[in-house]
């Protein structure tokens, strides 16, 4: 005979459809596209400069002829140079060339080596640093008098770093330590540390109260071992889930820094710097130098956001809470 369940308490919340749409949107299709874009970008980060049809960092060699059939040289003195350098997209130069006669397509597909590497490196460093500090702060919180208050100070410090507008701090830090790919990585790592710190600290506070941690302590495992072998693996997941979104953020910040001349400087191919080189040109109608790097950047960040969202949804079971 079958048994009938007779539940005592049942929370009955009517569920309407808008939430169902928000939570259950067709992520699969979108996710496939996003993974595809990211795969292409990673591939380009590996081989972009190699497969680029033109050298992304040096000017085009071939000369053009003017109306009289005379060669126009790529010289700074010639007022016609800029016009000659700038060529609209064509069969030879798919995305056109910029005002320095650099091939926009070659530069666009070479940029992931700069942007993606900055994003991945700064996220990993920030995650690592944030996790360790968050673990220590979470484990030490409310323990001994000195250790506990140190943890408290650390937490407050991280809060206050986050009180500064991110982009302003990034600018100021770049002013302090200088610009360039490696410097941008340091700056972003520093900025991302508090983000991951918060997640890991919060999780550590929960995990350290679980019985298995007590059990480990009871059998006399050393504190460091408990922290790194038992608590860390359990408390780092929520932070890791944010990784993809933070990477997208890193790309936007890098491009922003380069856009105001504080990040990665030309001629190194970088999307933000490329967009900057087209600022005046957009006003005079030569759109291609800024538009193509912007679209590529947008696609990359878009795919990271979509991937991040579906990881988060898979992890928590519900999504799109907040931004």
């Amino acid at each position: 005979m079958t048994t009938t369940t007779w539940p005592a308490v049942r929370v009955r919340v009517p569920r309407l459809s808008a939430s169902a749409i928000w939570a259950g949107m067709r992520r699969q299709k979108l996710l496939t596209i996003a993974l595809g874009i990211l795969a292409v970008m990673i591939f380009l980060a590996a081989v972009g400069p190699i497969i680029a049809p033109h050298d992304p960092e040096s000017v085009l060699r071939e000369t053009l002829l003017d109306e009289q059939g005379q060669p126009i040289l790529n010289s700074q003195g010639d007022p016609r140079t800029q016009l000659v350098n700038l060529r609209a997209p064509s069969g030879t130069y798919w995305f056109g060339t910029d005002e320095k006669a650099l091939d926009v397509f070659s530069r666009t597909i070479s940029a992931p080596r700069v942007d993606l590497v900055i994003a991945i490196a700064s996220t990993i460093i920030g995650l690592g640093a944030g996790s360790v500090i968050g673990l220590v702060a979470g484990y030490a919180a409310g323990r001994g008098r000195l250790v506990g208050s140190l943890a408290e100070v650390l937490t407050r410090f991280m809060d206050i770093i986050q009180a500064f507008p991110v982009f302003i701090v990034a600018l100021a830090l770049v002013a302090v330590i200088g610009s360039g790919q490696d410097k941008v990585i340091y700056v972003l790592s520093f900025l991302f540390t508090p983000i991951f710190f918060r997640y890991v600290r919060a999780e550590t506070l929960l995990v350290r109260e679980l019985t298995f941690v007590e059990a480990e302590r009871a059998v006399g495992n050393p504190t460091r071992r408990i922290m790194f072998n038992h608590i860390l693996p359990n408390s780092v997941t929520t932070a890791t889930v944010q990784g993809s979104a933070v990477m997208g953020y890193a790309i936007l910040l890098t491009a922003g820094l380069s856009f105001v001349g504080a990040g990665v400087a030309p001629p190194t191919p970088e999307w933000g710097a490329m967009i900057r080189s087209g600022v005046e040109l957009m006003q005079s109608g030569q759109w291609w130098t800024s538009v193509f790097p912007g679209i590529t950047l947008g696609l990359t960040v878009f795919s990271l956001a979509v991937i991040g969202e579906s990881i988060r949804v898979r992890w928590r079971g519900s999504g799109l809470r907040g931004y």
Binding site: G248, F259, G272, G278, G294, L297
Partner: peptide, 11 residues
Amino acid sequence: GALPDFWVGLI
């Protein structure tokens, strides 16, 4: 969320 604000301004 994926587009840089300065690029949108330029467009």
